[in-house]
């Protein structure tokens, strides 16, 4: 008779504190009414309130992002993923909820200069269109990057130029082009400049909104590789919104799937892509091009 193998209880590690904790994030487009939240969403099959016509873009989203973690958000057009990202980027008002960023506090309560300061220091967004992210076509590529350092209050030209130029170099922008206006750059090169600008102050939270949409496949691969390397280097928490499941497969540790403003499935990226449970996720995964 053999003795039973003693069961060794593995010590339970406390989960690391979240870098970003979002609770009850709500965003409506319209007047809103008492039945908006009960008559919309995944179960209702619509995000338009039948009573008042309000679009319930986000009915009350909860999510967390850990330090160094990459969270992917996928979903069809109109599912609320870009609204979620732009709300987190403080680019638009919200109708309810909280977003706590470690070291900063409640993001949605920030106003005026404090809000602008956080948007250049602690969190930064990379858009599909660089000019939506505040980059200016008539300014030199280096100026677009250095703007973030000037906002910090740096007032010596040479160190600024070294830092901004160095970041552009790491993003693969040749030194001979640093002084060229951004408007003369190709789409892929503009994304490199945007990425350099986004990362120059080592933000705590990096938000990527369709960062490679519209680029040809070879440029997409280069930009994605740059993003992946940059995330490793800065250890920023990252949220990436995309239509492209290949992007989340490459970048994201964890993925959430949105439909009609709600999170309908959440899990590790492998789990979501290899073993989807929700019918909408199954449909998304099945619709991937081979």
């Amino acid at each position: 008779m053999s003795l039973p193998t003693p069961v060794v209880q593995a010590p339970r590690l406390a989960p690391p504190p979240a870098l970003l904790r979002v609770e009850g994030l709500r965003r409506l487009f319209g007047p809103g009414c008492a039945s908006c939240l009960t008559s919309t969403g995944d179960a209702a099959g619509t995000n338009r309130c039948p009573a008042c016509g309000t679009i319930v873009a986000l009915p009350g989203i909860d999510l967390e992002v850990g330090p160094g973690e990459v969270l992917g958000i996928v979903g069809e057009s109109g599912s609320g993923k870009s609204t979620l990202l732009r709300s987190l980027a403080l680019e638009q008002p919200v109708d309810g909820g909280r977003a706590e960023l470690e070291g900063v506090g409640e993001l949605f309560a920030l106003e005026g200069r404090a809000r602008r300061d956080v948007r250049t220091r602690a969190l930064t967004i990379v858009h599909q269109d660089p000019f939506s992210a505040g980059l200016r076509s008539q300014l030199a590529a280096e100026t677009n990057v250095a703007e973030r350092l000037l906002a910090r209050g740096d007032r010596r030209f040479e160190p600024l130029s070294m830092e901004a130029g160095g970041m552009l170099g790491r993003m693969g922008v040749h030194a001979g082009r640093h002084a060229d206006p951004l408007g003369t750059f190709s789409g892929g090169m503009r994304q490199r400049v945007q990425l350099a600008r986004a990362l120059i102050r080592r933000p705590q939270l990096l938000l990527l909104d369709e960062p490679t949409t519209g680029l040809d496949p070879s440029v997409q691969a280069t930009v994605l590789s740059l993003i992946a390397r940059s995330i490793d280097r800065t250890l920023a928490g990252t949220v990436v919104v995309t239509h492209d499941l290949g992007v989340v497969r490459l970048l994201a540790d964890r993925t959430i799937v949105m439909h009609h403003g709600e999170i309908v499935e959440e899990g590790t990226t492998d789990q979501i892509l290899e073993d989807p449970v929700h019918p909408h996720t199954q449909s998304l995964v099945a619709s991937r091009l081979p």
Partner: peptide, 11 residues
């Protein structure tokens, strides 16, 4: 204004 000055200096 500093951004404008920086751009003039770079270019």
């Amino acid at each position: 204004a500093w951004v404008e000055l920086y751009d003039d200096t770079v270019r």
